[in-house]
């Protein structure tokens, strides 16, 4: 007689007692191992955060503090030189981090909010409403973001708040597409149909089922948009249409009067750009890595709605008879 022997199944991993702590450590570990450049990006982003928050403590000079050293090249006293008004370039760059951070975060938060609002409602409600809204989104996206910004700036005028609002509007509508896509795919999932079948109200379905599942998508959009927002603010300030002087926006440091002196004091325009480039690169890398790591995780079932499928489906095995 034979006995039913199954091939060995690998043991199920023990459920961690401290879910959240180990999840973060797990995530960081994977980040460093699988996406080293993403880890570098994370460090850069953190550096930006620290510089921005603690600018007052880190910068040796004030952001508008003039000294008598006009246009002096990088030296011991002034690590990156001074500009035409005698201001320390290094300090201004550090304060610039704060600006990029503030404008970037605010604009992106707003933009993401619009994206979710527009995308989720459009996707969820569907029908005629969806069609019309999508045409509107098409039209909006047909105009390149920076041109849309210019149009809006000519309407709202320049200034810090205006810049934030303009950037958020220009970037926000585009993201709604992605959110809508995510909502649509979740809407067709069985558990949503089940919710509808047992009579859940639309609001309940939206909040309990759909929103938590698009969380990963939203985080992805957010990280992508931040570097875009920072670049856009820099571009607008460069054109003179963004933050007014004397704000040391990295973009602004390359424009206006600086252009008259840049041949004589190239460090004025060199360093802001390098820092901007590094920050954007770092954030992009980290965003890429984040996306990579979050996606499969979501499928694996981290979160309230995830379920782990059993490793083997044990079918009914008929005992074979030996002659």
């Amino acid at each position: 007689m034979t006995d039913v022997k199954l091939s060995k199944s690998s043991p199920d991993p023990a459920m961690p007692t401290d879910m959240r702590g180990s999840a973060i450590r797990d995530f960081l570990g994977r980040l460093v191992r699988e996406h080293p450049m993403g880890a570098a990006g994370l460090l850069i982003t953190l550096a930006l955060l620290i510089l921005g928050i603690f600018a007052d403590l880190i910068a040796p000079f004030g952001l508008n503090e003039t000294t008598s050293n006009f246009m002096s090249p990088p030296s011991g006293a002034h690590l990156l030189g001074t500009d035409n008004l005698g201001r320390d370039v290094f300090s201004r760059i550090i304060y610039g981090a704060r600006i990029s951070l503030v404008v970037g975060l605010c604009a992106t938060a707003l933009a993401t909010f619009y994206s979710v609002l527009l995308g989720a409602t459009s996707g969820f409600i569907g029908g005629r409403f969806d069609v019309i809204v999508q045409r509107f989104v098409d039209a909006w996206m047909a105009v390149p973001a920076i041109i849309m910004s210019l149009l809006l700036i000519s309407v709202f005028g320049t200034g810090t708040i205006q810049t934030i609002i303009v950037i958020s509007l220009a970037l926000g509508v585009g993201g709604s597409r992605i959110v809508r896509g995510a909502v649509l795919s979740i809407k067709s999932n069985a558990y949503v149909e089940a919710g509808v079948a047992i009579g859940c109200s639309n609001g309940r379905i939206l909040i309990r089922h759909i929103l938590p599942n698009i969380a990963a998508t939203v985080v992805t959009i957010f990280t992508l948009r931040i570097s875009e927002a920072i670049l856009m603010e820099a571009a607008l300030s460069f054109l003179g249409l963004g933050l007014p002087p004397p704000n040391p926006s990295w973009g602004a440091m390359l424009s206006g009067t600086a252009r008259n002196y840049m041949f004589l004091a190239p460090w004025m325009v060199l360093w802001p750009g390098i820092v901007l480039m590094t920050v954007v690169w770092g954030m992009n890398m980290f965003g890429d890595a984040l996306r990579d790591l979050l996606d499969p995780k979501l499928r694996g079932g981290v979160g309230r709605f995830g379920r782990r499928a059993p490793k083997h489906t044990e079918s009914e095995v008929e005992r074979s008879h030996a002659k």
Binding site: L6, S7, K8, V317
Partner: peptide, 22 residues
């Protein structure tokens, strides 16, 4: 009628005959 068991894990082949388990 089916043959009992499942095909072996090709990454962990047993020492003797591969079919012995089934």
């Amino acid at each position: 009628r089916a043959i009992d068991g499942l095909p072996p894990d090709l990454a962990q082949l047993p020492e003797g005959c591969a079919f012995a388990a089934r």
